[in-house]
């Protein structure tokens, strides 16, 4: 068994596919060009299974599983795109839009926002839920970056990239439930943070306009979270 890679065959959306043991459903689906929407997942970071957009159906089980963390097994039959799943994904997006203040027209990330693109992709035309309109702080104390909590969807990508890749662990989550807030250090101003290295990784991986580079205001703010797999590969090679 030493170096032999165990191969599993399974079915995703009626297509027979093969996978290595231990691979997640999401990884395999992507290898075969099967698209599953994700938001908290990012290649190069650990997975938390929190946004629930990548939920898929497994034949023979009534429970939905998150494709980003569920691993493949032999003979598994996965459906990624059923009516039931689409309905749940749309409702989750509606919940996110209504949770804080996502106003695309005045957002620095408009046109480059993953939440916005997912809404378009899933055909969301309006939000049926009442907007909660919370009054959340905007932290512009950092020299180069701003954190606007009104646009944060609590995906914790910033928390993970800072702890896992940069190794600084500036960000973490405070409070619980609907009152969760991403904080820097021990809830101090970002600009006053002694642990922040100003590397900007959190800004690049943020899927919305919650974390942005001040110099990009007004000029459109494309983000580049795709450096992570490359970075990890280079590190592993060293």
């Amino acid at each position: 068994m030493s170096d032999a890679v165990e191969v599993k065959t399974l079915i995703i959306d009626e297509r027979p596919v093969s996978a290595r043991r231990g691979q997640t459903i999401l990884e395999v689906a992507r290898e075969y060009g099967i698209h599953i929407p994700t938001l908290c997942h990012l290649d190069g970071l650990s997975d938390v299974g929190a946004c629930r957009l990548c939920l898929v159906e497994i034949k023979g089980s009534s429970k939905l599983v998150p494709a980003c963390v569920a691993t493949v097994s032999e003979g598994m039959e996965v459906s990624t795109n059923t009516e039931r799943l689409l309905k749940i994904r749309r409702t989750i997006l509606e919940l996110l839009f209504a949770e804080r203040n996502h106003i695309c027209s005045v957002c620095v990330a408009s046109g480059h926002c993953e939440l916005q693109s997912l809404a378009q992709e899933l055909g969301l035309t309006h939000i049926r839920l009442p907007y909660r309109n919370p009054q959340l702080p905007v932290d512009a104390s950092h020299e180069r970056f701003t954190a606007d909590h009104n646009r944060c969807i609590l995906c914790t990508r910033c928390v993970r990239v800072c702890a896992e890749v940069e190794g600084a662990h500036v960000w973490d989550v405070m409070g619980r439930g609907i009152d969760c807030l991403i904080i820097s250090d021990l809830h101090e101003d970002w600009g006053a943070s002694t642990s922040c290295t100003s590397c900007g990784k959190c800004v690049e991986v943020c899927p919305t306009g919650a974390l942005f580079n001040k110099s990009k205001i007004g000029s459109g703010h494309p983000k580049d979270p795709y450096f992570l797999p490359f970075l990890n590969q280079m590190r592993d090679a060293r």
Binding site: I92, L96, G177, I178, D179
Partner: peptide
């Protein structure tokens, strides 16, 4: 449930808050 939700996943965090409303 709304006040005891940890806030990690969207359906529980935002869903219970909307249900409460």
């Amino acid at each position: 449930c709304m006040t005891e939700s940890c806030g990690k996943c969207v359906p529980c965090r935002a869903g219970t808050a909307q249900m409460y409303t």
